[in-house]
Design a protein around this nucleic acid. Structure first.
Lengths: 93, 93
DNA sequence: GTCGTGCGATACCAAAAAGGTATTGGACGA
DNA sequence: TCGTCCAATACCTTTTTGGTATCGCACGAC
């Protein structure tokens, strides 16, 4: 599992639609489909129900969605925290 | 930044030694060195001091270490939590 | 001072992963 | 039955990652 996969997963979960999620994360639809399936395979359980209208979260998916949001937020916080140690870029020019 | 990089970083931070960290994460030394440097470049700040004896954590590195452990633990928890939805593999045989 | 030793860094190549375009298959409504 | 909209697949290219061999540097023994 990768952070990238988690970002893709959250996008699909929130959009309910692989195509729209792909636009949101700036990737084309097929790789996104593939990453979601890879994630499901790695976890050994389906995360979405495929319907003719799009993707619908299943119970394990809802469970992961909450956790994925937390993880991604912690990553952002870590980056921001470390960045505080970085010297300022100096005056412009 | 990837989860893999965070695992590598934690290993190096805890071992204080790229070679031992490499053994621990089952990777050879050069890729590990490269990933650590890539992480530092992405964050825009050094995480370690290079000494003739090994790698020594700097302040930003200590900051990241705490957060990285948290993130990796949450990932493990997420996997375990999702796995609880998985049907049991059935009786042996 | 010089030579061995132990460390991370680099060069270079091979393997694996990710992404893109084009296309397929299936469900639904007109 | 045909057009539309969806995810899934086929196929190729590009990027990333990992491995082996080697370098450069600092230190200690002598």
């Amino acid at each position: 599992m990768s952070l990238c996969q988690l970002r893709y997963f959250v996008a699909v979960a929130e959009e309910g639609h692989v195509g729209r999620a792909a636009q949101r994360v700036h990737v084309s639809q097929p790789p996104l489909t593939r990453q979601i399936r890879a994630l499901e395979e790695e976890l050994g359980i389906p995360l979405f129900e495929r319907t003719p209208r799009g993707m619908r979260l299943l119970a394990p998916g809802r469970c992961l969605l909450t956790r994925a949001r937390t993880i991604l937020a912690e990553v952002d916080a870590a980056v921001a925290d470390v960045a505080r140690h970085r010297p300022p870029p100096g005056p412009p020019g």
